[in-house]
């Protein structure tokens, strides 16, 4: 059950939600950054004519898309980075790095698999004639990709990328299971203080909505602005 009193009690712990929000924002922003850069390389590797590289990238994408995010997070935290002595300082004085860092790695690895498929579909949607025109002017494959294909591909896949960014913000909540003190962790802490989960969960939901809704709207705005160039 939820009640007015419950919300009043939960709001007394507003600084927990604030710290959780900062942590969620950092998690998402870094994941978007690392995930996108990694995705670019994975996508290029998957389109490579050099088969070992292509095979490696294909295995990577298929494995990460076919296993649950939670399992990946546990493997990164309890297996891959178990033997690594991470520095134990706190980011902004609130976020414990040795838990935050594995969270960023796991989320980045996961979203890179999805983003790389989006990028690949974008690149392959560009007419082959564009490549032929660039190559017949004497441009190298790298120059062709950089100046001709990627700029057009990114524009086409912007809505799909926006979707993935929104997904990352929401998926970052899973990091609470390894003790990253993000929004969901904050909600859970408040639960133990006020003996009720309903109110903190609803507050967390509202904060997530306030993050994801504007994000998709802002990208939709940029998308419309870019489309303007397509009209006469």
């Amino acid at each position: 059950m939820i009640s007015i009193e419950g919300f009043q009690a939960a709001f007394k712990f507003w600084m927990l939600f604030r710290d959780g929000l900062i942590c969620t924002l950092c998690l998402s922003a870094l994941t978007v950054l690392f995930g996108f850069i990694l995705a670019l390389f994975v996508a290029l590797a998957r389109m490579s004519k050099f088969w070992p590289l292509k095979a490696l990238a294909t295995v990577y994408v298929e494995v990460l898309r076919a296993t649950p995010m939670l399992v990946q997070l546990f493997i990164v935290y309890y297996v891959l980075l178990a033997g690594v002595q991470l520095p134990t300082f706190r980011l902004f004085g609130i976020i414990p790095f040795e838990r935050f860092f594995p969270g960023v790695i796991a989320l980045s690895l996961n979203s890179a698999a999805y983003l790389s498929e989006i990028i690949r579909s974008g690149v392959q949607s560009i007419d082959l004639g564009q490549t032929e025109a660039a190559r017949s002017l004497g441009m190298t494959p790298v120059q062709t990709m950089r100046f001709i294909i990627l700029p057009q591909a990114i524009k086409n896949i912007l809505p799909a990328i926006a979707n993935e960014f929104v997904t990352i913000i929401k998926e970052s909540s899973i990091c609470y299971t390894i003790g990253v003190q993000e929004l969901m962790f904050a909600a859970n802490s408040v639960k133990t203080a006020i003996y009720s989960m309903g109110e903190p969960a609803i507050i967390a939901a509202c904060v997530y909505f306030c993050l994801t809704f504007p994000t998709s709207k802002i990208i939709a705005y940029f998308e419309r602005r870019m489309r303007r160039g397509d009209k006469r």
């Binding site: 025109a133 002017l137 001709i148 057009q152």
Partner: peptide, 20 residues
């Protein structure tokens, strides 16, 4: 081959200008 292609201009049926 890139060096040799520089010396051969090519014009296509569908123009293939860079739209961006």
């Amino acid at each position: 081959i890139d060096i040799h292609r520089q010396k051969m201009g090519m014009v296509f049926q569908h123009f293939n200008l860079f739209p961006h």
